[in-house]
Design a protein around this nucleic acid. Sequence first.
DNA 1: GACTGAACTATACC
DNA 2: ACGGGTATAGTTCAGTC
Length: 820
Amino acid sequence: MKTDFIPIDYDYFDFEGRNYVKIIGRDSKGKRVCVIDSCPVYLWAILEDKIGKEKMNKIIGDVKKIEVESRGRKTQVEKVEIHDKNFLGEKVKALKIFATNYKDLHDIADYLNIEGIKKRRGYDLGFISHYIIEKNFLPLNWYEISGEMLNNSFEFGGIDAALNVDLCIKVDKIKKIDEKKFSPRVIAYDIEADDFKIGEGEILMVSLVSNTGINKVITWKGHDSKKLGYVEYVKDEAELLERFVSEIKKSSPDFLVGYFSDGFDLPYLKARAEKHKVSLSLGIDGSQPRFYRGRIPTGKINGIVHVDLLRFIQTAYSQYMQSETLSLDEVANEFLGERKKNFKFKHSSKISKEEWKNFFEYNLHDSVLALKLFEKFWPDLFEFTRIMQEPLFDVSRNGMSNNVEDYILHNLKKFNEIPEKKPIHEEISERRNMEKYEGAFVFEPIPGLYENIVVFDFTSSYGSTIVTYNLSKSTFLEKPEKNSHNIEILGKKVYFSKIPGFFPEMLKEIIEKRKKYKRELKEKPDAVKTARSNAYKLLANASYGYQGFFGARYYCREAAAATAAFARKAIKDSIKKIDSEGYKTIYSDTDSIAFLMNDKKESEVLNFLEKLNSELPGIMELELEGFFKRGIWVTKRSGVLGAKKKYALIEKNNRLKIRGFETVRRDWCNLARNVQNQVLKFVLEDGNDKMALEYVKGIINKVKKREVNREDLIIRTQLKKPISEYKAISPHVIAAKKMQEREIPISMGNLVEYYVAETKGKEKKLVRDRVKLLDEKGNYDVKYYLEHQILPAVENILQVFNIEPKEIIDGKKQTKLGDF
DNA sequence: GACTGAACTATACC
DNA sequence: ACGGGTATAGTTCAGTC
């Protein structure tokens, strides 16, 4: 039996004490294929240096005797080989110890605590990762496989009969072949329920939308409403659950996609199914979803990849997004230019006939958006999976540190390197308690309006620093060495070998690939190249954070601190050169430098950039970020010092680049943000402070006359922890408490919305005493919005032109006092 | 009770 | 627990006079 095959999802099972992988995928005709395979199971024992032959034989003899019996299973050492390997920059002799069951490797490692064995490694990768590395059978790559077809066979206890697949093959040979087209079958889903707490309300409806023609809402509510083609009515919630399961079974998708479905939809379905004693048997083996408790619970379905798009967007995209929240509404708007439908939530008992129709549409449209988002991100999910070489299920949920680590583990083979172990609990807390090291350099700007500004920045600044100076755990030298890279951190010199380490080498390749794909992208753009280039960019950028991350296998604080130190040195050196060339640096943060052109031509600047680059060490490189017409830097609120991380630039085509200002902060009301944005525009477009001032005066009057819509006065603040844990009761905490009292769902992570109102009777001093929810009646507090929102937003900008807006407010107020 | 600096908190930059 | 450090700024809290 021979077929082509693309692996999508990996799982494993035990049979007669041994581990087998069960890989679900497709052939090129779209048939669903299950592949069963196994691989050698082993761990490494690194031997002490200079061990004699006799001693080695004794160790091997002892190791061979090891047997572990646990969980009704017997695992034994089946074979021992001696290998020359690398481990963290050293050449070592290591025993490759083969055993019966991967899950017992940890126990076997415990028995290896014997003299002559220095370290035990390679038992904590997880069997799936171990298998993928061992067999090089990579997710979302095409293979030609051959083997024995299982058809109602008794092998593995009759596993094939229980699986809802077209083919089940016990694989024998695997051969990589050229790329073929792969169009996955995808169903997006979304539920609506009466309570936001998992399982505490009834599920009213569920929508299913697929790229294979499904487009429906299943509901047991609103029978009386006008009949809609896409609505399927069932008799009760239990039947809804059954229909949901059968619909998915029938369609047999590769991916089941939701938005926040790890945290809401899937656990809700599970909880309600349990209540009704309905089996939520979505798995292709008929199994129910399994939930893994982590920081965020994760829902896994056997054979169907459950994707929660929110989690992928969080790690892969959020840092580059404009959206202020990651709500489906905002995210869909940003990526698809399409919003959710309008529907105001209320309890199902209060929904009228007409409203049910809107509710169904709302529900259906959420799935439509989820499917469209999946299609939008499919190239990214695909590339991430292929680059990290882990199943899409995991890659789509991993944070970037996990992705970096996966990339490393799957590329160690080329370096003949034994994998480092995960840090244990004590090690983690020890690392977390470490003192912070010095990070990036930020230049203190002189407040003012500037013209003709150039911005340079280092490409993959920290990444190229790591590569240039070979900074990593395996190249870190405990003792000073002469021919080494060295730099001072926290008053102590640290040294790194000049012999290339695997981590910097891998990173070098990542950066090179990123450059290559970026170049190709420029020539002929397409979604795949964009995704590929983006994935390598993210990897390169995350590698610095990875080495400083306490949970990393290849954690190296010295390397992280040295990276920041070398980068500081590089940028300071560049600033010196820029200034001595006749330019003037006005600002710099981490990897970028803004400076004045001082009557020089753009061509001169570009030539100078080339000169700078020729003098930079290693692969470090500056690039032109842009030429800007004007830019403004302001003082800090207190004092006269220039504020860092707060500036606005304008390009020749009048495109604004605003950083740090209230305009870009979501916890300021829209009025203040919009006013500030306008003022920046006036000031930067043609340096017109008079217009800006008149504009501000107009707004102040509008506020005083109470002509501002409440919508523009809403302050939104995120609840970052449970309400009870707050030590300081700030306005947004009060707002959240008010919501709780009124049983409006509110929990950690939500944005709290409120406005500040005038209160009658005795003067309330604290802001929190004047907080009102949006539907609470009240007059907005003019004084608060003028002095705590508008004024702070424009004050520092106008001060650059020697205008004191405070006087305008106060002056006007004198004349208006009589009004009160 | 007013004032002041520290603590707490949220958010942004790179 | 699920990259890092640098930075601004508002509001409350707690201590002082």
